[in-house]
Amino acid sequence: MTDFPLPAAAETVRRVREDPNRLGHRDPHAREEIEGAGHGTTGPAHRRIIVGYGFWIFLLSDIVMFSCFFAAFAVQRSATAGGPGIGELVDMHRVGWETGALLLSSYTCGLSFAATNVRSKLWTQVFLLVTGLLGLIFVGLELFEFIDLAGRGIVPQRSGFLTSFFGLVGLHGLHVTLAGMWLLTMMAQVQVKGFRPEIVHRLICFNLFWHALDIVWIGIFTIVYLMGATG
């Protein structure tokens, strides 16, 4: 056979005759891994892609759970039972600091992944540490916010609205806390085990998780806090 492709019609006829279902038959005796996008002769996709996809599906299920809490908040927004409404809960400065902290932490998380791509242990750890600290600042601010509110008698048991508010914001804070624990584990693993493929895949998953949390926070600070202050 020649190096240049046959005329289109002849090529098509040949392909249809040999491979009618477009399976792209792979050499059954191929021993080495064939890297590709998962179509036919190029074999299953690279594990990095498959791991990312699987974690995406988990992330979407998590976002569906958050959407249930969002829906509950939206429905309960006026069920204040004579208690405080959303207007009394919003502290714009604190929300601004929380948003800034989480956004910056998302940025440093991306930078740590860039460091992982060049296999620099030092910079990966540095940026992961900064990410963790910013996340800690976020959680701390939220904790102090809840303590302040409780001091004013604003607790989840007061009304349906407050239950849904604390449920939504609290669930997000819980996710950030757990992600912080995962971050500590990842820092330890990178330190001890270096950049093995599994570790890099886990860092990819951690990146996805942390960024998804920031996306959820965008929804929260817009719908709960900003719309609450102005609506």
């Binding site: 059954p28 624990m181 584990t185 693993q189 599994e198 886990r202």
Partner: peptide, 20 residues
Amino acid sequence: ALAGFVVFAWRDVHEFHVPA
């Protein structure tokens, strides 16, 4: 629970191949 998570994360062998 956290210890279980960390212990599991520390495993060195995480899969085995089933040949065709």
